[in-house]
Design a protein around this nucleic acid. Structure first.
Length: 380
DNA sequence: TCTGGGGTCCTAGGACCC
DNA sequence: TCTGGGGTCCTAGGACCC
């Protein structure tokens, strides 16, 4: 008996919305973003364009690319429509970002009354292939995933890729394998083989820094990591990262899919031109950030106690300064005043290195009945 | 005079994700 | 590959308390 997890991830979300809403963009390389690429359509990715890249460089790689501005209302509407389809399935749905979610189908989910069951012929080949060798729960999950993909395509007009497995990390990795516009099922009996063949950097949660440390130690695949003891991995990658890699390499990931996780902070930041900034300009930036954050907090009826000033310098080093207030606030002037104090404290650093980005984050939010944290790897 | 153990809060930094 | 605007979580040290 096992409960299956789905990771549903919209493909090139912003670019797909643009293509959906403007037929002239369909089938063509599309970049979303004015000076940094926030999303690239698959047609553009074929030229080597990636998210986070400057648009100037992206245009050099792909001169035919069509560059469009982001359209936030359209994204929000599309997101809500997609999540409505996901929730309608009856599964527990945990939003993971603007364009992805984990679903736990539990034991009870099946095709809701009033909706016809999916025709077996319409299920993608990979689902059928795995279903033949898999227990009932896997088959149900694969059928649900196929149906969600069809419904999102039909009702929202967007391509949705889905990974299916027993754990979050495997479902997440599987959805990446499914892209673009596909379904990838990791059957329970194949989990370990699938996992062990992966390069360590393909594991969700292993980033550039940890991958570099593992490579230096000669660990390139998850299988190699599994052959090493936990203490050794902790020595290589650090305490938390080593423990994480060890748990995942042995296919231990008990993180549950949780319906709602309240947000933990509100932040805003602003990139500045290079060159010396006057104190007045910095104050103005901090004031503006405080107003933006306060407006959003007000809308969500939240308040926070800790104000964090984030700085990035000309040499791309970073620093943070924080201050915890006696009580939670959502007041623009109070937030900006704390930011201003932190700014004053960081002035010597700013003068030495030259600031290129200033950000403000309000955290330590006043909670209203949040469930709190669950341990990551221990069974609940 | 010297010395525990254990807990919480705060600050700063690092790593990772989309 | 020279870097935008959001987030999350973990760690370590110091202050302070019992």
């Amino acid at each position: 008996m096992c409960s299956m997890i789905l990771h549903a991830d919209l493909d090139a979300f912003y670019a797909s919305v643009a293509q959906r809403d403007d037929p002239a963009l369909r089938g063509r390389p599309v970049l979303v973003g004015s000076w940094v690429v926030m999303a690239a359509s698959y047609e553009a990715r074929a030229y080597g364009v990636r998210g986070g890249m400057g648009t100037a460089q992206a245009r050099r790689l792909c001169p035919d690319a069509l560059v469009v501005d982001p359209s936030w209302p359209a994204y929000m509407e599309a997101r809500e429509a997609v999540f409505a389809v996901l929730r309608r399935s009856g599964a527990t749905v945990e939003p993971a970002s603007i364009d992805e979610a984990f679903l736990d189908i539990g034991d009870a989910v099946d095709v809701p009354a009033g909706r016809p069951p999916p025709a077996p012929a319409a299920a993608p080949p990979e689902a059928v292939e795995h279903a033949a060798a898999a227990p009932d729960a896997v088959e149900r999950a694969a059928r649900l995933a196929a149906r969600l993909r069809r419904d999102v395509r039909a009702e929202v007009g967007l391509p949705l890729s889905i990974g299916v497995a027993r754990t979050k990390v495997l479902a997440k990795i599987a959805s990446r394998s499914a892209k673009p516009d596909g379904l990838f099922v990791v059957a329970p009996e194949r989990e370990l083989a699938y996992l062990h063949a992966l390069p360590v950097e393909d594991v969700w949660g292993v980033g550039a820094a940890t991958a570099r440390k593992l490579h230096l130690a000669g660990v390139r695949t998850v299988g190699q990591a599994a052959a090493i003891g936990e203490p050794a991995l902790m020595a290589i990658a650090g305490k938390a990262a080593g423990r994480y890699v060890h748990a995942i390499a042995h296919n231990r990931d008990h993180r549950p899919v949780r319906a709602r996780r309240g947000r933990r902070s509100f932040g805003a930041q602003r990139a500045l031109r290079r060159g010396p900034r006057t104190r007045a300009e910095l104050t103005e930036a901090v004031t503006g950030l405080g107003e933006r954050i306060a407006a959003r907090m007000e809308r969500k009826r939240r308040a926070g106690r800790t104000v964090v000033l984030r700085l990035r310098f000309g040499d791309y080093t970073r620093a943070t300064r924080s201050r915890t207030l006696p009580r939670a606030t959502a007041d623009a002037a109070e937030i900006a005043a704390a930011g201003e104090e932190l700014l004053a404290a960081a002035l010597p650093l700013i003068e030495r290195r030259g600031v290129t980005l200033v950000g403000l984050t309000v955290t330590n939010l006043a909670e209203k009945g949040d469930a709190g944290q669950l341990p990551l790897f221990e069974p609940p």
